[in-house]
Design a protein around this nucleic acid. Sequence first.
DNA 1: GTCTATACCGAGATAGAC
DNA 2: GTCTATCTCGGTATAGAC
Lengths: 216, 216
Amino acid sequence: MEKASTSIRSRSRRPAADLAAALLDAAAVEFAAHGFEGASTRRIAERAGAHQPQINYHFASKEQLWRATVDRLFALLVVPDVAAAPDPASAFAAGVERFLQVSASHPALNRIVNQEATAPSSRLDWLVATHLRPLHRLVAAAWADVRASGAGADLPADEVWELVTTYGALRFANAPMLALLEIPSGTEPADAAEHARRVLSVLGLAPAPGSRPGRR
Amino acid sequence: MEKASTSIRSRSRRPAADLAAALLDAAAVEFAAHGFEGASTRRIAERAGAHQPQINYHFASKEQLWRATVDRLFALLVVPDVAAAPDPASAFAAGVERFLQVSASHPALNRIVNQEATAPSSRLDWLVATHLRPLHRLVAAAWADVRASGAGADLPADEVWELVTTYGALRFANAPMLALLEIPSGTEPADAAEHARRVLSVLGLAPAPGSRPGRR
DNA sequence: GTCTATACCGAGATAGAC
DNA sequence: GTCTATCTCGGTATAGAC
């Protein structure tokens, strides 16, 4: 599409950590747009302003680069303040909003997950075992707390997971398609917050900034 | 993964139309699993029990094969009985169920759409202009009728479109991932019908086999 | 219409000078 | 650590015998 800078940086002119980070940023974009098999290390390197063999130097292989990219994206989901919410319902709502904020600002996360989700592969096995299953467990436990506190709609935890990861996240992951359909899908924090409100409303956790949860 | 049959059919032993259909079936699976760029015409031909150059004979190019594959999948969505429903709400519900039945029996449809949805491309332009925009218009008009009849939840048409295409369809498109998460997602007609009931419930069109629409 | 053979290109990865 | 040069493989597409 477009050159990273004017051309490739001259010579050994960047701290190694910076280059690794630039490669990971570029890899996220390319893997998200073309999938693992469709993405090319040449284009990733070009986007990062580097030469293609640099990838094999800093990462062992294309697959290792992919894993490092995924690790970096999922790390954005860990919330700094654990359990700083007054009740299970607002804690859950805060988690959903956090997820959607990251989904809006880093659409590569859900794009990569959905690219892998449609076919069995060693990458999908790793993705589920390393990242998705722990998250899924966390969400299930948190939803059980919400329900035990009397809040939330009468939905099983798996339905909640599906609603949040599909209806919640795809608005940002599929932004190029929605734009062509003229369905507005802003990615500013305020847009993500508004979308989170809609998702939470389906979950029976209506506005909930203060309290007053259990609706339905 | 696995050979189509024992090996490639001996010689000119299949009507041309059959081979074209077999190639389209194989293409749907491969494009759905690996995306346009990740799929290979060699594997598609192999899966169809044909030789790779046959693809360029029956279809002009990989891209033309892809378009023919998409056309064939979207053709499954056209309902034979138009306007055979007593009221807008049950007509809408029948359309949603039809969509989810096809999504369950032919997961390639939504997989291919989602593969393309994440990045601009000439394929996405064609997909939206040819198939998605007409469908989107149809759904918007049908939802307006539902709302005018006093039925359905207080949601804008675009939200309804998003809910149906994401929460509704991804359960089947992402089945390999959901299986690893041990989230049950059967693809039998009864499973699809049950899922349709859940989706329709979110839309405020609860059971609605007979009538009694407007809930919320 | 179908086959074999192959042209041509771009992929990921490696060697070795600097 | 970074570069150029190159290896090997698999991709799409085409030529031409049958």
